[in-house]
């Protein structure tokens, strides 16, 4: 298993910014790791704690959330809520024994294709270093 393991990253990307950024990275053929599975949402604040935890529960090694830069949220203050929520959730993950580095929030605008590619690159490397999520292994045990 050790050789075949490739980190699984779930990316929740805001439709108005980060998703467009990812799109741009794609169309301009910037290279970023294929590990990320993208889920498009209308605003980063759509992502509640349950969704993030569920992603880990279902075997994700890491979760990425991409939203609009401060002041740019299509729904005015959605990203501020996301920011606070994720800050607390990272703490909770840590309390349960899950490395908070596995959950990352970034602001990426529609124009920042390169930033997206770079961030993903960096994140995938970091997760690779962290190794498989211990929760993923636990889930396989039970049935």
């Amino acid at each position: 298993m050790a050789e075949t393991w490739n980190p699984k990253i779930v990316g929740f990307l805001c439709n108005w910014c980060c998703y467009a950024g990812a799109d741009m990275a794609g169309t301009s053929r910037m290279k970023y790791p294929p590990n990320i599975r993208i889920i498009r949402v209308m605003c980063s604040s759509r992502i509640n704690a349950e969704m993030v935890i569920k992603a880990f529960q279902m075997g994700a090694d890491a979760v990425f959330i991409g939203g609009c830069h401060p002041g740019d949220c299509h729904y005015v203050d959605g990203n501020y809520r996301t920011q606070k929520r994720i800050a607390v959730l990272r703490r909770l993950l840590e309390h349960l024994g899950i490395d908070p580095r596995r959950l990352r929030l970034e602001w990426v605008s529609a124009a920042e294709g390169e930033k997206f590619a770079q961030t993903m690159d960096e994140f995938a490397k970091e997760v690779a270093e962290l190794g498989p999520s211990p929760l993923a292994a636990l889930q396989r045990e039970v049935l």
Partner: peptide, 9 residues
């Protein structure tokens, strides 16, 4: 841990 994490959160 999802059940207890949701409650705590």
């Amino acid at each position: 841990p999802i059940y207890h994490m949701i409650r705590a959160f």
